[in-house]
Every structure is written in structure tokens, then in C-alpha cells.
Design a protein around this nucleic acid. Structure first.
Lengths: 230, 230
DNA sequence: TTTTATGTTCACTTTCCGTTCATAAAAAGA
DNA sequence: TCTTTTTATGAACGGAAAGTGAACATAAAA
């Protein structure tokens, strides 16, 4: 399996921390958080992450200083979180060696895209972990492409996310509630049956039964993407 | 092993100079800088760089004059740096023989990508050529020319840039936001639907469906230029 | 200046995705 | 077997997202 990628979030707003954790873990990253600059630096040297997400506006030691300090001896990629779309800030960030930036408030999906892009740039040898390759099923999240039996299948966003989440955690059972939280968001308040419908549509498109893998219902619990080992 | 590539930066803003030095050296280039046009020209004849990065807005002797002067006897590739909101400068730059341009403020990674592209184009022996050549579609960015089905198509600057960005990253999905950032500039704040209109115009001119390639909409995400492999 | 070309926005239309609901089917328990 | 619970399925509705045509502003060209 691929090396687990570690992400360090240095951000004083607990809500944003939560948000990033939620999405980053969905993408299979290991996330640590620090609530201020000093702690962030300590944790940086402590756990040597593969990527740092760094808020600029923090009390005491702000993001600029943390960035500068990290860059003194290290080139670990850094994504800065900036408050407003001040182009001067962006320039300053790049000048200090930041690799990318995000303007708050941001779309978490976009942040994930940028994380992936930065990681690809920094560690080309890792190969992207956004690709699922199984017999008769290839998923390329970057190209938004699903190929089933040599043929391209077009999936709407929700079905795509659902399928990717399940396949990237094969054999793991998810409750409807978990799926709703991870894909629809923490604050979604709707019918859990919605998941069923999307599962059905995925099954329709991919065929339900297969010699190698299948979307399986765990009655009373939820769903899993089952893959035969070897 | 490889020849060390020399880059000359002619730019009066020390901040931007530093930024470029930081990134260019990270990419293994040898960087010299000049803070005004006259000095720039002297250094050009002095150290004969492989690539020039040239700011337009400079006191005394501006970038246009430097570019013209260099082009009198030399075809060393030139990347122009234009300020925001001087879009017409691009065409003028190409007419004077510039090879590419960047709008300030820019993403340094993007600049590096363009440097690499320009170098590949200028010194094909160093790598593969970067001109777009597909069945029924040739794009020559240097001459602002698109040839569709043996016939030359005239595209306005924005459409040209959009098409080139998409084709040079075929199959990769771009969000509207990404396209705006890369083409309109980092700090552009306008309607993302503007992209749609340009996409439509490109489609009108190139035909949307094609046996070999097509501009594809990824609903809920953005656009990609899809090319059939093989 | 006038004329033309380009970029942007807006209003309107079309397409299609997400959700809900009603009903059928399946599984579990009695 | 019958009942209850859970899931599957088909259809329908509302609305979001993209397509589209045109108007407008501005820049370039004549």
C-alpha cells in the first residue's frame, strides 16, 4: 500500500480545523493540528509532516513567521490560508516559500484539490493516490473518469464521490450516517435513504455482481465495497 | 551532466526578483538579475543567458525597448512580465518576438512551468517539443495560430489562452476558478460564468464533437480537453 | 472621430442531478 | 407461515448548473 501521507494543520479556528480534518481524512491523509504558531513549529519538528497547511492570522506568532522558520532548513510544501484576497499577501506568501494559498472562506473540495496538486508537485515519485485500479474498474479522480470493462462511465458528482469513498476504503463498512457526513457534509439534514438511491444508481451503472468486487449491503448497518483478496 | 541553464531576470521590483530567484534556483537554474533596462542589456551581452525574464514597466528603458533591442540580433527566448490590466500588451509582446508572458501577480509555480515550456520549445534538443499537434488541430502559441482541419482559425487572446491551457494539459479537469487564476490572473474577481462563454465560443469555432478530441464539461466541477489515447 | 473586435455580464432556456415518496421485494423474527 | 423491519426500485418533482443569445462597455483599428 502507499505510504500514509501526514498533514499538519496550524490554525487557531477550531471550526476550520475540524473541517479540514474531516475532508483530509476522507482522502486518506493523517492529520495533526496545532492551534497556534509555536505549537505548530514544535509539532512540525516532532512529526515531520509531508505537507503543512498554515493560517496567516494567528495570535502571538503569525503564519509568516512560522513559514519563514520552517523554510530556514526545510522545503516541506506549505499551503497558506489567507483572510482576504489581498494580492500582496499572496505575493508575500510565495516569496517566503509557500507553495500555494487558499482564501477563506474556502470550498473544502477545492482545498483538497490543491493539496493533491501540491503533493504531486513535491513528491512526483509517490504517484497520485487518486487512482483506483481493479480488474474491470479504473477510477481516475483527477480526470474525473471511471472505466468499467474498458468503457467509460459517466457518473454525476455525488455518485462519483460515493463510489470513490467506498472503493478507496474497500471492505470497510460505512453506515448511511457516515456516508452522509463524509460526502454530504456534517450539517446535512436529510433522508438517509438518499444514500440507497445513489447506491442503486451506481449498481445500475457498474453491474452489481462481479467476480472480483461488488457493492454489498450490510443489513441493519450500511454498505461496503467488497474486494476479493487475490 | 546537463548543461546548467542561465536565466537573466530584468525587473526593477526587488521583491519579485527575489521570488523568481528563490523558485528558479530551486529548479536548478543559474539566475542573474538586473534592476533596469540598460543594465539588463549589458548583462545580456555579457553573460548570454539561455532565457530572459523581462518586466515591461521599468523606468528609463522599458521592457519593450529591451525586447526589441535583444531581438535585433538574437532569438534567445523571452518571457515578459506584464502588470495587471494590460492585456493588449500581450499581443504587442508577441509581435516584438516575446515567447511568453505572465501577468503579475503570478503563481511562481506557473512561471516555472512556463519557463520549462519555453525552454523546451526553444531548445528542442533538451527535451520534447511542446507545440500542440493533434489530428485536425495544431496550435502554435508563438504565432498565435490555430489550425483546425487544415484551415487557420483566428482566436482572440482569451480564447487562445484558454484553449492552449486546456490542450497542453489534456484530460486534466480544471475548475472555473483554476482557469480564472491561471489565465485572468491570481486576483481576478469576476463572474466565473465568463469561462462558460469563452468555452462556448471555442466550441463554436472548433466544433464540439470530434473523433479524436473534444472540450468536455464535467458537471459540478469544470472543463477538460479530452484526448482519446492512441 | 467612426468602426470593428473583444471581453464581460445578464436573462432566458435547457439539461440533468439530487431528493423524496410510494410501492415492491427481501430478510429476519415470531 | 405470517408479521415486521429493512432495503430495492421506479417514478416524479424541484432546482441547480450549464448552454445560449444578446446587450453592453471598452479597447483596438481604421
Amino acid at each position: 500500500m502507499n505510504k500514509q501521507i501526514k498533514v499538519l494543520v496550524i490554525e487557531d479556528d477550531p471550526y476550520i480545523c475540524e473541517l479540514i480534518i474531516l475532508y483530509a481524512e476522507k482522502n486518506g491523509y493523517i492529520v495533526s493540528t496545532a492551534n497556534d504558531g509555536m505549537t505548530g513549529l514544535e509539532m512540525f519538528y516532532d512529526c515531520s509532516p509531508d505537507l503543512v497547511i498554515l493560517d496567516i492570522m494567528m495570535p502571538e506568532m503569525d503564519g509568516w513567521e512560522v513559514c519563514k522558520e520552517i523554510r530556514r532548513f526545510d522545503k516541506t510544501p506549505i499551503i497558506m490560508l489567507t483572510g482576504k484576497g489581498e494580492s500582496y499577501d499572496k505575493l508575500k506568501g510565495f516569496n517566503l516559500g509557500a507553495d500555494d494559498y487558499m482564501v477563506k472562506p474556502f470550498d473544502p473540495n477545492e482545498l483538497m484539490a490543491r493539496i493533491n496538486a501540491v503533493l504531486r508537485r513535491a513528491y512526483p515519485m509517490l504517484g497520485t493516490n487518486e487512482i483506483i485500479a481493479l480488474p474491470e474498474l479504473k477510477i481516475n479522480l483527477q480526470h474525473y473518469k471511471v472505466i468499467y470493462k474498458k468503457q467509460e462511465i459517466v457518473l454525476p458528482p455525488k455518485e462519483m464521490e460515493l463510489l470513490y469513498l467506498l472503493t478507496s476504503h474497500s471492505n470497510q463498512v460505512f453506515t448511511r450516517q457516515q456516508l452522509l457526513e463524509k460526502i454530504w457534509g456534517l450539517d446535512y439534514e436529510g433522508d438517509p435513504r438518499t444514500v440507497d438511491v445513489h447506491i442503486k444508481r451506481i449498481r445500475d451503472k457498474l453491474g452489481n455482481a462481479n467476480a472480483y468486487w461488488r457493492v454489498k449491503t450490510i443489513r441493519g448497518v450500511g454498505y461496503k465495497f467488497e474486494v476479493d483478496n487475490q
